[in-house]
Amino acid sequence: MKIFRSFIGFFIACTVISANFGQLADLIGPFGGFLAAIILVAPMWFVCHYLNLVDNKPSAVFVDLGIAVGVCCIFRDTLLLGSSAFFEGLPTILLTALGGALGGFASALVEKDMAKIKEERPIIPEPGMTEYEMKQLKIEEDA
């Protein structure tokens, strides 16, 4: 049932976004892309992820909606405009995948560094305690 729910969620999102995003962008220009993201993508994200129409693991990253819409738009254009549309868009697809991989790598490095800083940082019982107060607290605990 999870796969069926996910399929329905992705189908609705892909249909709504791919049918209307380009029209808003063409009508208003670059601002139309931002407007389409707010009007179209945000509600689809809400339905798929927040309402949990699409099965999400607690530790997973929510890139599945972007992949679904991207693949939908690629195949829609390939079916409507022919295989030349796919090959013309291939450099963009590859660079997008490379950018996603680099972004994931950078995110992993940042997360690893944040975990290291968290381990090195002493646990402070109360926010705003000075080093002198921490030393006094340790002396009282040791005694």
Rank of each mutant, 00 (worst) to 15 (best):
T130C: 08
V47Q: 09
A115W: 09
G103Y: 07
V69S: 09
F87L: 07
P58W: 09
I74P: 00
C72F: 11
I39L: 11
I39W: 12
F62A: 06
L81C: 04
T130N: 12
V69E: 06
G104Y: 13
G104C: 05
L65M: 10
P30E: 15
I39S: 03
G103S: 03
Y50M: 10
L81G: 04
L98H: 02
A108D: 05
V69A: 04
F46N: 04
S84W: 06
E131I: 14
G104D: 08
I139N: 05
E119L: 14
V63D: 11
F31H: 12
V61W: 12
V110I: 02
L51P: 09
D77K: 01
S84V: 10
A101G: 14
C48I: 14
L98P: 12
F62S: 08
A115S: 15
Q136K: 00
C73T: 08
I139F: 03
V110T: 06
K135D: 15
E126Y: 07
I117N: 01
V47I: 10
A37Y: 15
L98M: 15
Y132N: 11
G70H: 02
G33L: 01
P91T: 00
V71N: 04
F34H: 08
F75E: 13
K57S: 13
K116Q: 10
V69K: 03
V41N: 02
F62N: 08
G32F: 00
L81H: 07
G99S: 01
E141K: 07
V69I: 05
G82T: 07
L79T: 12
G104H: 11
A36N: 08
P58A: 12
Y132V: 15
I117D: 04
L102T: 09
C72P: 09
L53A: 09
L80F: 10
E140M: 14
K116D: 05
C73Y: 13
D77Y: 08
E133A: 09
I38C: 08
D77F: 07
I39H: 01
D77P: 03
F62H: 03
A36T: 13
I123V: 12
A36R: 01
G33C: 10
L79S: 10
V41M: 12
N52G: 13
G89C: 00
